[in-house]
Write a protein that binds this DNA or RNA. Structure first.
Length: 568
RNA sequence: GGCCCUAUAGUGUAGCCUGGAUAUCACAGUGGCUUGCGGAGCCACGAACCCGUGUUCGAAUCGCGGUGGGGCCGCCA
């Protein structure tokens, strides 16, 4: 509760000054560990140590000296502060979201356009989009960008397959695998990925002719051959469209798409390579390939970072550096969302950017989602497609809605089930800390109980229902008796800004997701204890709180892509 | 083999940087709550710091050594 800490610090300032100790106590003043006892706590051990006195005495003395819009108590060396109820409620009802309005570019997803999204790849998109949304909620100006990998081996394989394999051949090559879900017939990412998989199967048989053909395509594309790049685009574009359709269902969209080939075609890659070759840490291999010795800049392990092949062409990482230099020309602040397999690469790119005098982007790394039987692979085909998961989630949600709401039409049920399904899928991925891996389990992904999106959605819906019944705006100036559950709700609402800030500044959407569960819980208890509409009429104070909570729940849910419904 | 990430109740999660109170919150579990603004709810109760060791008055937090899980170590992307 930052606004509480501020006034406490002011008040403590003079009291502590009497002791003549250093300022280190300020960093110790923070959110209380014992939530039941206090909002903010100052452990007095540091001060006591400096004075060589008993911390319990210090705490008691300080408790006598400070005063403000809070209750203070000293227990066992701790100075505990609890916000004054009236003051806190006033703060909360008057809260408005601030607008730092920083320019920021977030690049996320950027998946190779060679097949449908599976749950593993989707973690990037869901985390990235949550970051985009949370930054916007925080008041920043965000541009969401997708880096289209329109060259290189993956696309080459796809383009080769589409050029050289008939549908019959593909079906035959993949005859030992599960067929395509008929539901996705005609959806280009699902259709086309089979060509990709068939080609990969053929390649695993060590067919030199195919390898040569693909290599030629790769090199032509890397040299900026227009015809080949066009052939690639024809191959991947429909796949990308199919992928974007899935993302759009998840509420994920982009402001700009930038093609990797752009930096080859416009010459910036070759300019970059010349620039790199003049650096003092540049090295040249026997066949003319060039690298930077990043060991001299502190990189451990493999220290040679190759950016130019023996034949003079660029590598993926080289183009990534050119891309980053361009990105820095577009924005003041940069965040990338990357899988943990890109850690080394990101380190190399970062060190190189630094060497060139550029800044290093912030990166949100995430661990992979695996299946109980092992990791997912588009190439091998052992994946859970996001399209399938969304369908299952919707189906499951519809069953629940149909049971609970016999008064609704199928059309309404369909609408609600879609929102619930999408929200639940997103929430279940968002609530987990990005740097922890997890195993995908159907029963968990489809669980709408517990700490899931529908729980939050339901609280919001209740608040909407009340607002509809009242039928007018709340008067946020209204005040009234503050009983326990009102106070607890106000405490929860009071940390909205703190939780948002932590999530945004530390790139941790899961913190905010977990917070929304708390806020919803607090609202539910308030809802039970504090009737807004009674036989005596409308309780204006409770209604004001309910409306502010509804507002916070609503914008909070949108901040992580959970859809706020008025009815469910 | 080397480097990096990770480990907190059945599950997810906070706290770790900057050592200090009975370790946060939520779900699941068990027991309770139907004349109630929507019961997808509410209340109560059990339940955790990976192991060892060192430093310290005091360690989830710091050091050292292990173990489990994940990732990387291509002139691939």
């Amino acid at each position: 509760m930052k606004f509480l800490i501020e006034i406490i610090e002011q008040s403590l300032e003079s009291a502590v000054a009497d002791y003549g100790v250093s300022d280190t106590w300020k960093s110790a003043l923070g959110p209380s560990r014992e939530k039941g006892q206090a909002d903010v706590t100052l452990p007095c051990f540091v001060i006591a140590k400096e004075l060589k006195r008993n911390p319990m005495e210090i705490a008691s003395e300080l408790a006598e000296k400070v005063n403000g819009e809070f209750h203070v108590s000293a227990t066992g060396g701790y100075l505990n502060f609890k916000a004054n109820a009236e003051w806190l409620v006033d703060k909360v009802l008057k809260w408005e979201k601030p607008s730092p309005n920083n320019q920021i570019l977030i690049e996320h997803t950027s998946a190779n356009p060679n097949g449908p999204f599976h749950v593993g790849r989707a973690r990037n998109a869901i985390l990235g989009d949550s970051l985009v949304r949370l930054h916007r909620l925080y008041g920043n100006k965000v541009r969401a960008e997708y880096y289209v990998d329109d060259m290189g081996k993956q696309v080459a394989v796809l383009a080769w397959a589409l050029e050289n394999l008939s549908k019959e051949m593909v079906n035959q090559i993949l005859s030992d695998r599960d067929g395509m879900n008929p539901k996705w017939e005609g959806k280009p990412d699902h259709e086309t990925v089979r060509w990709y998989q068939a080609a990969q199967a053929l390649r695993s048989e060590n067919n030199q002719e195919i390898e040569d053909a693909i290599s030629k395509l790769v090199h032509d594309s890397e040299n900026g051959n227009d015809d080949v790049l066009q052939q690639f685009e024809n191959a991947y574009k429909p796949v990308l469209d199919g992928m974007l359709e899935t993302l759009s269902r998840l509420g994920i969209g982009f402001d700009t798409f930038t093609k990797e080939s752009k930096f080859v075609v416009d010459g910036s890659v070759s300019t970059l390579m010349d620039e790199l070759s003049s650096l003092e840490i540049n090295g040249i291999a026997e066949n003319g390939a060039q690298y930077l010795d990043l060991g001299q800049r502190g990189l451990k392990g493999k220290t040679e970072f190759f950016y130019r092949r023996g034949d003079g062409s660029s590598l993926y990482a080289t183009r990534d550096i050119a891309y980053h230099i361009w990105k820095w020309s577009q924005t003041d602040h940069l965040i990338n969302v990357l899988g943990e397999d890109h850690k080394l690469q990101a380190k190399q790119v970062g060190l190189t950017l630094k060497e060139l005098g550029h800044e290093v982007p912030e990166v949100l790394f995430y661990a992979f989602i695996k299946l109980p039987e092992g990791k997912m692979s588009t190439r091998k085909g052992n994946v859970v497609f996001m399209d399938d998961l969304l369908e299952e989630a919707k189906f499951h949600a519809a069953e629940v809605v149909r049971e609970l709401r016999t008064d609704l039409s199928e059309e309404q049920i369909n609408h609600i089930a879609e929102a619930v399904g999408v929200s639940a899928v997103r929430f279940n991925i968002t609530k987990v800390s990005p740097d922890k891996g997890f195993t995908f389990r159907w029963e968990e992904a489809l669980s709408f109980e517990g700490g899931s999106a529908p729980f939050v959605m339901y609280s919001h819906t209740r608040a909407c229902s009340i607002a509809n019944k009242v039928g007018k705006d709340a008067n946020l100036e209204s005040r009234g008796e503050i009983i326990d559950s009102v106070y607890e709700l106000a405490r929860s609402m009071g940390v909205f800004q703190d939780k948002l800030e932590i999530s945004v500044l530390d790139n941790k959407p899961h913190i905010f997701a977990n917070y929304l569960l708390e806020l919803a819980t607090a609202y539910n208890a308030f809802y039970r204890d504090c009737h807004i509409l009674t036989s005596d009429g409308l309780n204006e104070f409770y209604y004001a709180l309910s409306e502010k909570a509804r507002y916070m729940l609503g914008i909070g849910m949108e901040g992580i892509g959970v859809i706020p419904l008025e009815e469910m």
